[in-house]
């Protein structure tokens, strides 16, 4: 079977249809969000250790950062 290209190796081309400007009064460039917003719209690329479950690790992070809501992308369990 010919090798399928995994999603992270697909190169996306960008095609411009029209040009326009964005008003600096509204919104933020993601990396320039003020701290509270930066955290609220943030994700962490965590290197999970052996031992605790994914849920436990997420709960620990939620407690450490004093957050209301937390989620994780795909359980890493035995």
């Amino acid at each position: 079977m010919p090798r399928t290209v995994p999603p992270w190796e697909i190169k996306h081309e960008v095609y411009i249809k029209a040009e326009d400007e964005t008003d600096p009064k509204y919104g933020h460039i993601p990396l320039e969000r003020p701290p509270t917003e930066f955290i609220r719209y943030g994700v962490i690329n965590l290197n999970k250790p052996a031992g605790p479950t994914s849920h436990e690790v997420a709960a620990w992070t939620k407690k450490l950062l004093q957050l209301e809501v937390i989620g994780h992308g795909g359980t890493l369990e035995a």
Binding site: V43, I44, L46, P49, G73, G74
Partner: peptide, 19 residues
């Protein structure tokens, strides 16, 4: 099991489906 575990904070949890 160990390794890459994306953690979504607060409102960004809406993108968890993407993972």
């Amino acid at each position: 099991m160990t390794g890459v575990l994306p953690i979504t904070l607060e409102d960004s949890t809406k993108v968890v489906q993407a993972f």
